[in-house]
Simulated assay, not measured.
Amino acid sequence: MEHVKLIMIKYFATFVLLYLVLGIAYGLTTSQIFFVSLISLALYFLGDLFILDQTNNFIATFSDVVINFIVIYLLLDVVGFAGDRLIAAFISSIVLGFYEIFFHLYVTEEFSYEHEPISIGRYDYLMELSEEFEPFIDDEEDDYY
């Protein structure tokens, strides 16, 4: 059930952000944005469930930005976008990347992806390797310590 809720949140946010960038700024229709959002929703399973589980938020967000850029760039050609696809895909993927930062924090909290940090333990074995600087000559002097 958590997946359904997360998919709905991600789809709605992706649709709204893509509508702001591609719909208002570049003039794409709502049905075209619906199609691009639906296809980019398939990235939920790759980026948010697989990459985020294995790595951290930064790497998962960066990979989502790159994958979103590639997918949106290719889909803008499919829907017949007449403008500059490179700039439109870049701006869209950056805007979605800012959203993904916070969405990954929510996904991490929902699924408890917190991993134990890898312990790079320092084993400080202390041992004395030198002789005393002022050795006691007489055993009777040991009493005052």
Rank of each mutant, 00 (worst) to 15 (best):
Met1Ala: 07
Val4Trp: 01
Lys5Met: 07
Leu6Asn: 14
Lys10Ser: 04
Tyr11Phe: 15
Phe12Glu: 00
Phe15Met: 04
Val16Asp: 02
Leu18Glu: 04
Tyr19Glu: 13
Leu20Phe: 14
Val21His: 05
Leu22Gln: 01
Gly23Lys: 08
Thr30Leu: 14
Gln32Gly: 04
Phe34Ser: 11
Val36Gln: 00
Ser37Trp: 04
Ile39Thr: 11
Ala42Gly: 13
Leu43Tyr: 01
Thr55Pro: 05
Asn57Leu: 15
Phe58His: 13
Phe58Gln: 13
Ala60Asn: 07
Val66Met: 07
Asn68Ser: 14
Asn68Gln: 06
Phe69Met: 02
Ile72Ser: 05
Tyr73Ile: 03
Asp77Asn: 09
Val78Pro: 00
Gly83Cys: 02
Asp84Glu: 13
Arg85Asn: 12
Leu86Lys: 14
Ala89Gln: 02
Ile91His: 07
Ser92Arg: 05
Leu96Trp: 03
Leu96Ala: 09
Gly97Asp: 08
Tyr99Trp: 08
Ile101Phe: 09
Phe102Trp: 05
Tyr106Phe: 11
Thr108Pro: 02
Glu110Ser: 05
Glu110Leu: 00
Phe111Lys: 09
Phe111Leu: 09
Glu114Arg: 11
His115Pro: 02
Ile120Lys: 13
Ile120Gly: 09
Gly121Ile: 11
Tyr123Pro: 08
Asp124Pro: 10
Tyr125Trp: 09
Glu131His: 06
Glu132Met: 08
Phe133Arg: 11
Phe133Asp: 14
Glu134Ala: 09
Pro135Gly: 01
Pro135Val: 07
Phe136Leu: 14
Ile137Met: 11
Asp139Met: 09
Tyr144His: 13
Tyr145Gly: 07
Tyr145Met: 11
